[in-house]
Amino acid sequence: MSSKRFRPDVDAPEYHGRYSPYDIIKEGTIAIVLVGLLTIILAIVFGSPDERAITIKTWSNAAPVDFATTALSELNGTSGTAQYGAPYNTASTGQQLGPLQLSKWVGVRIPINTVKDFVISPLRAMPSQPALRDALTQWISASTSTQDAWVANYTKAADKLTFTNSVVTVPAANAGPVPIFINDLTQMARTGALDQALITESGYYTTDYTRPLLFLADGAYLESVATKQHLLGTQWGMMNETGSYPGQAWLWLYSFWYQIPPFNSSWGANADVLVWGLMMLLSALLLLVPFIPGLRSIPRRSRVYRLIWREHYRDQK
């Protein structure tokens, strides 16, 4: 070291001072006891939140029109999932980090076809109902352009969609089997059978909720419940949890970027990937602080260490 120049932000001076007794095991034991007590007190005083999960059943009973409209958006390809792009489908390019189309390059790894997976397959799982069976046969034997025309005709009248006497009605002409689909899917949802159908589409044993969650998230109901709990992205979003709990407060910097321009304005369309990119860059900077001139001098320049080691410096004088 003597031959090399001493770099104050990289090298540590040698210590020739005094040593005092230090009982590391006792300190550790006291720490565990105190942290344990504090945990118990906080748990008793504040508890923890546990709002029941929403089901498609609760959704379609609480907001049948929203459900039916969402079901239509799965069928006519306007839902969030239908238009998502990778990893679910190829409907859009997805977000871009400058010229990098990261998600598109990785491709469709969790294929979701909203027409088939969210509407037709569940309906086919329904126990035999003559009208529905005929409607499905009509759909399957029709050409794609006929299917599209039916859906388009239904969609045109969909702003007059009503739910009265437990039936979904739309004043649509030439909509083929679509009115039966939307009504029967709504009925199915209200009994809870759609939850089951979506969860078990990939088999009897399952731990994968991708489909029912995507369907739920396409509707307005999930968001309306979240809004009541102040959980929207514009309300600092997912770093919070229900109730007045601190949640993932450590995500504040991540959530912060979504609250300010340009991420919430001109860069909005690619906000997710930009915020993620930025956070990765900042994490890398934190990891590499010891190697970055300027950054690594902040501690010495700021002189906060005078406070931390004030007794040491007082002793020296």
Binding site: G94, V106, V275
Partner: peptide, 12 residues
């Protein structure tokens, strides 16, 4: 957020 980075394809 995770899907936008491409990682969502594997970390669902």
């Amino acid at each position: 957020g995770i899907n936008a980075t491409g990682a969502g394809a594997y970390f669902n």
